[in-house]
Design a protein around this nucleic acid. Structure first.
Lengths: 200, 200
DNA sequence: TTCATTTTTTAACATTTGTAAAATTTTAAG
DNA sequence: CTTAAAATTTTACAAATGTTAAAAAATGAA
């Protein structure tokens, strides 16, 4: 999922079942099919989990830790998504189109992840209608969130977007450095400093 | 679909089959199930097809015409999506969550539409795995487009976003007034006029 | 065509945000 | 604890965008 942190962000970790149940109720047989495909993996802070220029084979459910997605641009990196416990980390075009994508995913903390093979997951989408609808629901939730953020970018000031962000995700300030937050808000770090100074 | 206009935008109109085939190959039985639910409707330019404050019962495939989605804000309307032939017009939260949403859909031209009942479509998602995957694919395509636009908002100048927009959609300038385009780009109409003046 | 309405552009000034560089604070390693 | 590195804030100035109001152009109905 692209940007949640809401519900269970403060939990120390989430189980695979916790994560699967967030999007859509699945019968146990479908959950078991996922469990059979999943492998537990761990990587340290700073690890690049997925890269833009590769067709990535896996997506990752985040059990514990914080990550960011960023696009490389002529003007530097643009962070456009944070993922925490319960979210799904993936490079969009690899997942959706089997092509290279526009973003890298970097771990901002040591992470425990559930790794799953995209091709095998898609085979399940073709075989199991519950999982096909689970996959639909997952994307739908991301789409609503992304569209809401896009609209906010079109008419809210940077200060409003900052306030909204930390109100919805108070722990973000404790877990993510301000440079990444500024980028996520679409402003320079200097601008974010000014906004924060004005709030004191 | 949220913002395409690409492939067949210049076509005078698209059939239901054209539209269904854009996202995902469907067996004929599945297409027939959709055909059985669909009703042809027409509305004139200016008609408000869907509204934010209602739980809408229908979504519409656009056979002919141009529409926009906009959110009402304290500072006026924010247009954040244009739909043309082949696109799907819907209020997101009605479609996704069965709740009121954040946008109205207004017709910018006289339109021919295929109307379909959301509840019945969702029943099909539960019964027909091909349609469930069609629905997944539809949302996935929207998500990639929306995410790409969000990233562009974060690091491209208004002028670059304007150039990108009209390069991808040359006919947009002929079919949509500049005030809506300015809003879509996240700038004032005055700013857009300045950008256009500088390009001459 | 003519006239009223709507849309778009232009002008003037205010505000926001960006950039570059320096100062300060925080973090992390030894 | 001390020190070097990294992150954050501050400052000064430049560039981009917003707001308001007026002028010009385009549109559409009679």
């Amino acid at each position: 999922m692209r940007f949640t942190l809401g519900d269970k962000a403060h939990e120390p970790f989430m189980t695979l079942d916790d994560i699967l149940d967030r999007f859509y109720p699945l019968p146990d047989a479908s959950k078991q099919a996922i469990r059979d495909l999943v492998k537990d993996v761990r990587y340290p802070k700073g690890h690049i989990l997925l890269t833009a220029d590769k067709v990535e084979r896996y997506i990752y459910f985040i059990s514990k830790g914080m990550v960011r997605a960023y696009a490389d641009t002529p003007n530097g990196q643009v962070t456009f998504w944070f993922g925490a416990e319960g979210d799904v980390a993936l490079t969009m075009n690899s997942y959706i189109a089997g092509q290279t994508s526009y973003e890298d995913i970097e771990l901002l903390e040591d992470c425990n992840l559930y790794r799953i093979d995209i091709k095998k997951l898609k085979q399940l989408y073709q075989q199991d209608i519950h999982l096909a609808n689970w996959g639909r629901k997952f994307t739908e939730r991301e789409l609503v969130r992304t569209e809401e953020r896009l609209i906010a970018m079109q008419f809210k000031t940077a200060e409003e977007r900052y306030t909204d962000l930390i109100n919805k995700n108070p722990d973000l300030l404790l877990r993510v450095q301000l440079g990444h937050i500024a980028s996520y808000l679409g402003i320079s770090q200097v601008s974010l400093s000014r906004i924060r100074a004005a709030r004191r």
